[in-house]
Amino acid sequence: MVYGGENLYGTKKTDGTWSGMIGMLIKEEADISMAALAYTPSRGQVVDYSTPLLVQYSTILGKLGQPELDPWSFHLPLEPYVWLSILITLLFVPVVMVLLSLISRVSLTHILTRHDIWQRRVVLATWMIVAFVLVRSYASNLMSVLAVRYVQQPYQSLRNVLDDAGVTMIWQINSSRVEYFRSVKSGIFREVAEREKAGRIKFQFLHEFWGSMDTFLRKGDHVLVAVEIMTRFLISHDFTKRGQCDFYTGKERLLPVFLSGVGQKGSPIVSQLNKRIISMQESGLYDLWIEKSIPNSTSCSQTPSRITKSSSLSLPHLWGVMVVLVSSQGAGLLLLVWEVKCPPPTPS
């Protein structure tokens, strides 16, 4: 049984020989390796794989952002159709008044004041009731919305990573996933290969991932692409060390692989090993071993993307509202200037 003297699972070199555990098995320096190796066609030609121990996907591991208030959250208390109806009303009323002023050749001020006093009172009272109900309903919901902070988790998929030119990916050196994206001719993984040519990918051994959590990932400009069990180990290790969840895994699952033990080509040991693996899986023993080997494995499994926090508001929190306010006031000012500079002709 071997672990891999070169700290590699096994990669085919340019001269046709193999490194790592695969190389040791080919040279008959060992009989079997129970380290979970991903299956690849090239490896399958030189060694025999056992029944898969587990099936794993690759996931994206990234740094959680700081809780932030969405400056545009003021629109959330009302449905889009309500906002649309308010906007249409605000635009429709002044347009109608201006058109009436132009058609009748009477000033806008005269149109607003020439109606009967009781009619004006009824219109004013109706508008005040509607505005009061709308404002009270909006304000009560808005206070709840402004207490919500959004925890940034920007890299949920490989496409999110590729669209950000400032982020660097970390992959396991000479892994089956690296072998795959280097071989494809088109698609999203071809873009990953092009990112490697641009120098935006770092390759590391598994044991280097632990240090990368602090040196690279914690800065927020790096992400790690690794199998799920590895990302669980890393997150649980960091949580055990710091007592808080600082990292998250993306929702997208990439590149499924079968992880198995391997033996020499044609070795009868592999067939006997398969029986033990099947028995172990049916009893749930292997899954139990995995759970026991990962302390605090579920502590950060459901990292919230939103939290509620009570704090005083400041101008940076409300700059979205200020943009709308300044824009509306500016539009009203322009309309007033237009009315003063271009009054309608008085009737003769």
Rank of each mutant, 00 (worst) to 15 (best):
R242T: 14
F74P: 00
S301T: 11
G187F: 05
K341L: 10
T113P: 07
T11N: 06
Q244I: 08
K251F: 05
S42V: 03
K13G: 00
V227A: 05
S299R: 12
V93R: 11
K241L: 08
V167A: 04
L84V: 09
V192L: 02
V192H: 01
K12Q: 11
A125S: 09
Y138D: 09
G10H: 05
Y150T: 13
G62M: 04
L53G: 07
L334T: 12
G250E: 01
E28C: 07
M34G: 04
V324P: 07
S186K: 11
T109H: 12
V192D: 01
W72Y: 13
I278P: 06
W171K: 01
P343T: 11
R177L: 04
S42K: 07
E191T: 07
R43T: 03
L158I: 07
V178W: 00
S283E: 11
Q156L: 02
T168P: 12
F181A: 00
R149Q: 11
I201F: 12
L78M: 05
S314A: 10
L333F: 15
T249E: 03
P94W: 09
Q45R: 07
A131F: 15
S301K: 09
V262L: 07
R200G: 10
Q156N: 13
Q272F: 10
S58K: 07
V323I: 14
Q56W: 01
P316R: 13
S73L: 01
E291L: 04
P80T: 07
G187L: 05
S305R: 08
A165Y: 08
L25F: 10
K27G: 03
N274V: 02
M280P: 01
D116H: 15
V46Y: 01
L254S: 01
E6Q: 15
T17P: 00
L112N: 07
V133H: 14
L288A: 15
R105F: 09
P316T: 05
M1S: 08
M280W: 14
L53W: 15
K63C: 04
C342Y: 13
R120K: 15
T11S: 04
Q204N: 15
D31M: 13
V122M: 11
K265A: 09
L108K: 03
F181Y: 14
L78V: 01
S260Y: 11
E191F: 02
G266V: 02
Q244K: 15
A139T: 12
V161P: 00
C245F: 03
F181K: 00
R253Y: 09
F233Q: 11
A331E: 05
Q264R: 15
Y3G: 14
D246L: 09
E252T: 08
M1I: 06
L69Q: 11
T215L: 13
S312D: 11
L217G: 04
N141S: 09
M169Q: 11
P80I: 09
Y155L: 04
P347M: 12
W210Q: 12
L162C: 06
L124H: 12
